[in-house]
C-alpha cells in the first residue's frame, strides 16, 4: 500500500471490451476478408476497382446526408433549447413526445410519409380541395422527399443528446452571465452553446451515420431513382454474385464515416477544454 493505489475503476469497462472483441471486431474481420477476396478465392483488389461504378451513389449519399444533418441541427437545436427552458415537468412530457415517433417502425413511418407526399396523397388531396382540381405540388420521387424522409426519421436523434446536455447546464451560469450584463442572446451564444457542444457532436453523429447508410427511405420516397450507397450495398448482398463488392463498398463507407466521426470528436475535445473561455 505504498504510494498510489492502482485505480481499479477502468476495470468496469472489461465486460464491454470482451463483448466488443467478440461481436464487433471479429465480424468486421469477416467483412474485410470478403472485400479482399477475388473471384478466384485469393487475395485481390478487384472489388475495390469495381467501386468506380458507384461514385454517383457515394456522392449522392454524402450530400443528402450532410444536408439532412444540417437541417436536423438547425431545427433540432432550437427545439432542444426551447424544451430545456420549460418547467421540469413539461420538459419530461415534451422530451417523451420527441421520442414517441421512434416507437413507430421506420418502415411504417416512411410509408406514411410517402402517402403524405404523393401526387395523389394527403397533402395534394387537401390542396386540391382548396385550390381546385388541377393543382398539383409534385413532391414524391425527388431528392427533397428523400432528404425530408431522413430529417423526419432521424430528428429525434439530434434533439435528445442536445437536450440531455442542455438540461444539465447549471442555470446559475446564465444568471451570472445576465448579472455581468449579457443579453439573453449573448448568454445563449457565449455560455449555453459552447457548453452544449458535446451534445451537438453526439447529435450530428447520430443523424449523419444512419442518413448516409439508409436504404429503405430512398427506395420509397425517391422511387428507386436516387440510389444511395446503402441501396447499392443491399442490392449487392441480395444478389450473391457481388457479395465481395458489397463488402468492399461497406469498407469504404466505414472509412468515410470513421473519418468524419474522427473530425467531429476533435471538435468536441477542443471545445470541452476551452469551452467556458470563449
Amino acid at each position: 500500500m505504498t504510494g498510489r493505489t492502482r485505480d481499479a475503476r477502468p476495470v468496469a469497462a472489461a465486460p464491454h471490451m470482451v463483448w466488443a472483441v467478440l461481436f464487433i471486431i471479429a465480424p468486421l474481420i469477416f467483412v474485410a476478408v470478403y472485400s479482399f477476396r477475388g473471384a478466384d478465392g485469393g487475395f485481390s483488389f478487384e472489388n475495390f476497382a469495381a467501386l468506380g461504378d458507384y461514385t454517383d451513389a457515394f456522392v449522392r449519399s454524402a450530400s443528402y446526408s450532410l444536408i439532412a444533418t444540417v437541417i436536423c441541427l438547425v431545427i433540432g437545436y432550437p427545439l432542444a433549447y426551447a424544451i430545456s427552458l420549460c418547467s421540469p415537468r413539461t420538459q419530461r412530457v415534451l422530451i417523451m413526445m420527441v421520442m414517441l415517433p421512434m416507437w413507430i417502425n421506420f418502415l411504417i413511418r416512411t410509408y406514411a410519409i410517402m402517402k403524405l407526399l404523393e401526387d395523389t396523397g394527403f397533402i395534394n388531396g387537401t390542396l386540391q380541395k382548396i385550390f381546385g382540381e388541377d393543382f398539383e405540388l409534385h413532391m414524391i420521387n425527388t431528392p427533397g422527399a428523400v432528404i425530408f424522409g431522413m430529417v423526419y426519421d432521424y430528428l429525434p436523434y439530434m434533439v435528445l443528446p442536445i437536450y440531455t446536455v442542455l438540461s444539465k447546464i447549471d442555470p446559475k451560469l446564465g444568471e451570472a452571465a445576465a448579472d455581468l450584463g449579457c443579453s439573453k442572446v449573448q448568454t445563449l451564444f457565449r455560455v449555453t452553446l459552447p457548453l452544449s457542444v458535446s451534445g451537438v457532436v453526439s447529435g450530428i453523429t447520430m443523424v449523419f451515420v444512419p442518413s448516409i447508410s439508409t436504404f429503405y427511405i430512398s427506395q420509397k420516397l425517391g422511387g428507386g431513382q436516387y440510389l444511395l450507397i446503402g441501396d447499392a450495398i443491399e442490392t449487392a448482398f441480395a444478389s450473391t454474385s457481388t457479395y465481395s463488392v458489397g463488402a468492399a463498398m461497406s469498407l469504404v463507407l466505414m472509412v468515410i464515416v470513421l473519418i468524419s466521426t474522427f473530425i467531429m470528436n476533435r471538435f468536441d475535445k477542443d471545445s470541452s477544454k476551452g469551452g467556458v473561455v470563449i
Binding site: 469477416f30 467483412v31 447520430m206 451515420v209 446503402g230 450495398i233 461497406s250
Partner: peptide, 18 residues
Amino acid sequence: NVPMMNPDIVTGISMLLL
C-alpha cells in the same frame, strides 16, 4: 462506436458471417 457508425446492413451481414 463502430456498430453505431456502421451501416446497419453491414453490422447485420458481418454478424451473419460470424
